[in-house]
Amino acid sequence: MFLDPLTATLILSGVLAFTALITWFIYSVVKSNPTNVSEEFKEPYLAGEPTSTLSRIDAPSNTLFWGFIYGLSRKLYHYLRERMHSGILNEWGEYMSVYLGLLSLIGLLFTALILLRGG
């Protein structure tokens, strides 16, 4: 059982619009307004950081995502990034050969099956 495309579109569009409205409302309530930052706030700490760093009011996007994603699934990403997508040809070749082996095995099993049946 599945919805017809038109009904599905209407329902999902409505849900999305509603969610967007709620999200926008929450954002507008909690957002920090850059124009409200006082001159004192913009003053640098006396700890060696450059002024440009301190005056940034956003988090770098990679920090944002690493904090959330990498923290949750460090092992998975370690494998995906350091082992699988290492950029080393030998390691690529290993994965690709295993796949070729799998396809060959399917072919071999099929042929053996047919030959056993007297094909």
Binding site: L103, S104, I106, F110, T111, L115
Partner: peptide, 19 residues
């Protein structure tokens, strides 16, 4: 053998096409 030919051809072609 047509079964062998089909098995080999499909395995190799599929590897190339997925590449």
């Amino acid at each position: 053998n047509p079964y062998v030919a089909s098995a080999v051809a499909l395995a190799l072609a599929l590897w190339a096409f997925t590449y």
